[in-house]
Structure formats: C-alpha cells, structure tokens
Design a protein around this nucleic acid. Sequence first.
DNA 1: TATGAATGAGTATTCATTCAT
DNA 2: GATGAATGAATACTCATTCAT
Lengths: 230, 230, 230, 230
Amino acid sequence: MVDTTSENSASGHSESRADGNYGGGRPVAPTVSDLLAELVAEGLLSEPDSTRARLLTCAAGLFEQKGFARTTVRDIAAGVGILSGSIFHHFSSKEEILRCAMEEVTLHARALMAAAVAASDTPREQLRACIRCELEAIHGEAVPGFSILVLEWRSLSSESQARVLRLRDSYEEIWRKVFAALDGPLDDPALSRRLIQGAIAHTHNWFKPEGRALSLEKLSDRILAVFAPA
Amino acid sequence: MVDTTSENSASGHSESRADGNYGGGRPVAPTVSDLLAELVAEGLLSEPDSTRARLLTCAAGLFEQKGFARTTVRDIAAGVGILSGSIFHHFSSKEEILRCAMEEVTLHARALMAAAVAASDTPREQLRACIRCELEAIHGEAVPGFSILVLEWRSLSSESQARVLRLRDSYEEIWRKVFAALDGPLDDPALSRRLIQGAIAHTHNWFKPEGRALSLEKLSDRILAVFAPA
Amino acid sequence: MVDTTSENSASGHSESRADGNYGGGRPVAPTVSDLLAELVAEGLLSEPDSTRARLLTCAAGLFEQKGFARTTVRDIAAGVGILSGSIFHHFSSKEEILRCAMEEVTLHARALMAAAVAASDTPREQLRACIRCELEAIHGEAVPGFSILVLEWRSLSSESQARVLRLRDSYEEIWRKVFAALDGPLDDPALSRRLIQGAIAHTHNWFKPEGRALSLEKLSDRILAVFAPA
Amino acid sequence: MVDTTSENSASGHSESRADGNYGGGRPVAPTVSDLLAELVAEGLLSEPDSTRARLLTCAAGLFEQKGFARTTVRDIAAGVGILSGSIFHHFSSKEEILRCAMEEVTLHARALMAAAVAASDTPREQLRACIRCELEAIHGEAVPGFSILVLEWRSLSSESQARVLRLRDSYEEIWRKVFAALDGPLDDPALSRRLIQGAIAHTHNWFKPEGRALSLEKLSDRILAVFAPA
DNA sequence: TATGAATGAGTATTCATTCAT
DNA sequence: GATGAATGAATACTCATTCAT
C-alpha cells in the first residue's frame, strides 16, 4: 500500500516553487502534486486512496514481483482487503487491470519527469534528470510497478497495447524534446533513447540500491557520461 | 523446426579454418561445429534432431513468443508432433523444460561467440564480435529463443536459476576477458557490460531486422561506438 | 415497455357494451378494462405504470426471450431504468419475480378471455374465442410474456408452482365451462383441452404472424375445426 | 444409465424380421438395431457404453429434468462417475454437450420411428406408428431426454441450432412421407404435423404413464382420431 | 517411448443478494 | 425508494501431471 501523495514529495524533485524564480527568466516549474491533481481532475488518474487506485497500485506491484500470469485476481483483491468478486465492479477483466495499471504508472512517471525537467537548467541537466527519474521509477518507491511496462508488455492484447502506447508516447515526447535541445546533438537521438531505455530497464535485474557502493545518483551520472560524453 | 547443424554454418563467422593461418601466429580458431559437437559429446547439449532437442527448440520459441505461463505443454508437444503425455518421458516438469531450454540456448550462444572472438584479431574487434553475436542471438535464426534468458527469468525457481547461472557465467567470462584486453580499458567493465546487455536485450522490443535502414551490422557498430569510443 | 391499459382496447374483442343488448336476454358482458380495474382494486394485479408493474412486464418479456436462468436481475432492472439492488425493494428474490410475472400474465389473459367469451353468442363461438385469445396471448401484444407459463414452469419451486396453479385453474375453469356447454359434447373434454393447449403453446415455436398467409384468425378456425368438427 | 441395445427390443416394434414375410409382398423391414448399428458405423452415433455415449445419455436426462442452465458440468460428470475436468476431453464446451445430446436423441428417435413405420401396413397405421413413437420417445425409456429438443431449444446458439435442424429435418421427412401417403389426405399436412407435434410435446407436462387409466396406446389412438378421423 | 483418458487443483468471471448511505 | 459497492458461493473451463495400455 502506497500513499501516492507522500510519494511525490519523497521524490525530492518537486518540493515547491520557492526557488526564487519570481523575477527569474525561467518560468515557474509546476509541482508534481499540481500535475497529478490535474490528472485526477481530468479523470485520467484514479482518485488517490480510492479502492480503484489501491487495486491498481497493488496489482502493479504483484505483476512486477510474480508476473501477470502468476498473479491471481484473488491475490490482488486480498492485497486491498476485498474479495475477488468485488474486483469486477471496478474492472471488467484481469487484462483491464493490467492496462489501467500501466496507464497510471505511465502518467505518474510522466508527471515526475516533467517536473524534474522543468526544474533543471541546462539541456544536459535535463537529460540527467530524465535518466535519474526513469531509474527512480524502477528502483525507488516513486512509481511502484513501473517495470511492468516492459516486463508484461506481451501480456496485453494488441488493442490494449495501442491504448497504452498513446500515453507512452506522451512520456517519450519529453525525452525527445530534451534530446533535441542538447548542445552537441547526438547523431541519432531515437537510437540513443532506445539504448538508454534498455540499459536502464535492465538495471531492474541487477541494481540493488540499498547499501551499495553505487548510488542511483552516481549510476545516473555514469549513464549520462556514456551516452552524452561531456 | 530448426536444423541446429546447418544454422551454425549460416551464421557466417565460423566457416572453416581454411583461412591461411596454417603457418600464422594466431592459434587455430575452433569452428562452431567443433565446439557444439564437443558439448554434445560431453552430454551437455542434446543430440541434434533428437526428440529432446526438438522439444527444447520448439519450447524456447514458444516461450519467447507467448511467454512461459501462456505456453501449454500441449503446445510444445504439438509443435514436435507428439502428445502432451509423452513430454514427461523427456522432462519431469514444465519448469525443467524452461531450464533446459535456457541451458541449451546459453551453450549455443557461447559457442557462437567463442568462435567469433577467436576469429577476431584486435580486442576492439573482439568486442564488436561479442556485441554482434549477442544481437544475432536475439534477432537472427542463430539461437532461437535466446531472449527467454531475460524475459522468463522470473518463471524459474531459484534452484533452477542457480543452475542456469553457472552456465551463464561461463558465457559472461568471454565478455570479461574481452573487456580486460581492451587497450584503453573502461573504468568499470562490469557496469559497461550490464549497460550493453540491457541495451542489446531491449532491441528485442523495437529492432526488426528485415528491410530496415539499420542493419544488424551497423547497429553493432553504433553500440560499439557508444560504449568504446575509438 | 407496454401500456397495459391501451393494450386491452387493442385486442378488439371487448370494446364496450354498446352492442345493443340493453334490453336483450344475454346479461351485460363486462369490459376487459372493468375486469382489470377490479383486479387492481383487489390488489391482485399491480397498479399499471407502477415500477412494480413495469418490472413484471419487462421481466416476463426477458424470460420469454432469453429464458429465466439467462436473464439477470440487472437486465430486468436496466429495462425499467433502475439499479439491480433496488429490485429487492419490490421482490424478495428473483424467483418471486418469475412467480409474480406468471400470476399477472395469467390474470391478464383470464380477463381478456372472460370478456371475449362473454361477448360470444353460441358455445362454439365461445370455444373459438378461447382459442383465439390463447393464440393472441402468445403472439399478439395482448399479454406479453404469456408463454413463460409453459417455457419456464420448471424454473419455479414447487411451492411457487402451487400458488400459480391456483390462478391457473381459474383460467382453465373458463375453458371447462365452454367445453361443457358445447352441443355435441366431446368424449373427453379434459384431454381435448390438453391437446389444444399443447398445439397452441407450440405455435410459439413456428408461427410468425407478420405478413403470413395464415392469419391468427384463420389459424383459430383450423384449430377449432380439428378439435370440434362442425 | 441405459443399455441402448436392450432398449430397442424393449420398444416392441422391432422384434425381428421373423414375421413371416419371407414370401410376403412387403419388403423386409429393417430392425432398429440394424439402423442404430449403421449410424454407429458411420460415426454419427457414439459407440454404445462408451464414456461419450454415457455422458450424452446422462446429460440429456439431466437437461430434461432440471433444465440446461441449472445442470452443472459437475452433475453430468458425477452421473457417469468421472470428474468434471475430464468432460472436456470429450466435448469442448457445455453447449456442445447439449448439441450432441440433441443429435443423438434425434437419430435415435428417427431409427425407432423408421423401423415402426416400415413394420406398418397401411398409411393410417403408419401415422399411428409415428404418433406412438413420438409419445414413447417422450415418455418411455426408449429415447431418454427426447423432450430437450423442445424444452432447451433456446439454450442453443444459432449455429448449433442450424446443425441440429439438419438432422431434425430427416426426422420430419418420415412424417411428411406418411402424411403424403394418407388416403383422404389432410388439407394442410404441415399444419397438422405442427399441431400434433405441439399436442404430443405438451403431454410431457401432464401425462404420467404409470398406472393411469389412459395408456400410451390409447392416447395414440385418441390423437390419431382427432387429426385423422376415420 | 508413445498414447490418451483421466485427474484435481486452480482460474477468471458471474450473479443474486445485502446493506450502509 | 433508490443507490452502488461489496459479498461469497457457484460456474465453466484449463492444464500440468499421472498411468495403464
């Protein structure tokens, strides 16, 4: 169970706008909380703490841990303290749960990354922020279940894949803009993005942040150094 | 159905030793066929064309396509023209099929990579060969089902994971040696290897070799350029 | 949705008593409307247009179309624009809905038949009226859902069957009286009634009134001719 | 559980061909056993006593008793002493069980009727034989579950209905021929058939053969008298 | 080795019914 | 009277695994 409200502040990128840019050149950066509240208002994200939101968070976690096929609807229901039959008041099928979980996770990660990019000064800092956010999405408590987007992609019907892809694209759009703004632009930003994405996604299999010599912070720097040498 | 013998020659790296190095300085590079035959002789690899080998190839392909959990024992049996009950004369459980498939795939890929490295002159050429081989394992017909090593790792019990890891390590050993021999050695070869591995594994999700501007050959060069700038 | 009031006049047999028998020998024939109003007053029939009446009409129609077991309480509720939970303010179980629907349908058909018989002169005309009414009950808009009495009899518990049977018997009483009054009485009126009942009920499976050579009128005559040859 | 072989002789119409027609004018009438054996040989009817045949007999009986929707797959399996999962080795869905049961029942009844008609001399006797057979199909042990053809018709998808209709038509063909051969032919044989069919089907609801004044034999005669007055 | 019928535990999903609001 | 979220038992169907032949 995750308190989505407190998560945001936990990510550390979005504290507030009290950064003295009242008279500054850079426009006011939106807070993560603002962005998320807006999504909830638009009906794109579930009301925090609602049964629906708790089901999705729980499901995303279980899918990540055990895989979609090995997670039963009963597991998910038990995770939020209801009975399995009741799930179908919220979702019409198990696959819909997966799709919705992916959508929520994507929107969540996008909000975090958008805020972090907006809070960064140079394009290179922005790229570092993107890398950092994606790493945190996978490893931190920021976006629990983020890796199902990669791990369980095959479990989605193609119609559902198409729906998620639309949101996914708006997430990638942020990366594209950041790449475009880089001073010495890379030859093939699309390729770079894909290599970075793979490299980051794979950290899920080996990187354990707790008490490691290599922090998430440093890992971000290494990845930045490889793909955008200073 | 795949003829594992003919595949090897199809990979194009290991044609023969008729490369004029009879009197040369570099020791004779072993053929893939030699390496594979040796593994069969040692009982580490199934006799090609045996029912067992055909089951494993078919299973690896199906697991890659549909995922382990969504592939039924019946599917696999049907794929080689026997009935589901008969599979249990060859393997004691579905999970054993997955483990054995992973082992075969690993040995296969290792043989291909060992031969390619042996046929390369400089360390940088050797690194290119490694990248190229891993890409081919994923995309070519060289090692069908190779990506299950990543995709279906969670479907394996931890005991089985341990067994596969041992073989896996002998595969990684080749990479380690190649990294160690690089002229301007990288700061953190282990990290580099993991980033490369992730980047390559992820190509499974987006790279379609047929009729693309970007060939496997070029893709290898790009990856090499990123991780080991000349 | 059916307006039960207007239906009655649609049946065409019971328009009014303006048939000149003010001074006649035959007693005044009661209107269908009169009979139904009386039933409502006695509390045997639901107030027309009440939620309860609309639920029963809708349920009868759905049970006829899809069968009792395949009709959900949600379907019925949706049919009258309320939610499924609300149904249980009107009926204590789904089976009660079926029983009540059968009762309403029986009373309705009885009123129509009683009026038609009362408006007929000779016993043979009265028999024709009975046949005609039962056919109309099944095929016309006169008594929507009438055939559930036969089709869904097995779906009723035996206690409910007993309750419906009492009403049903008052319906059959009309037939019995008509048979008894026939000039050349049949050998075995009870058997004849049952054969007629079966023959008429089965028309539900094959007779389609719209644009057929055989009208309901003619069909009535044929059945009359078979069972009571002139 | 019914022994289909002994049933046939129990029906009393098909005793043997030792009826002295060796030198007679009428061609040798085929035995029910012959007809059924032929159907089994053609693969249209299940091997008697096979699990499949026992499942279908049992299912037909249960569907007749409790209705298709209220009969569970477990009930059927339990009826023949296997577990519910095993049913799906024989049929791919519950609906397939219903369809196959209807087909078997139809073929069975057709064979009985064909033999009875062949064993009758005059057209009127043949009509009596048809009526008698259909009554026996419903009430006797001759064709257990026959009435599902009427009672559960709505439970079948339209594709399945179409398949059963083809067989059903070959059953009706016998009736058509008999009607056509009647001396004083009826005005509208198709209508007569439908009325008879309804009348007979409905006997399922009221006629109880055991220890009744009215025997099946006499009932047949009454029905014959009504529809084909001498 | 192969067969194929049977197992039996498990799965997602349905649905009448309840009840606090 | 109506809501709608929750219940919980029941359902058809799945599938890895067994085993007598």
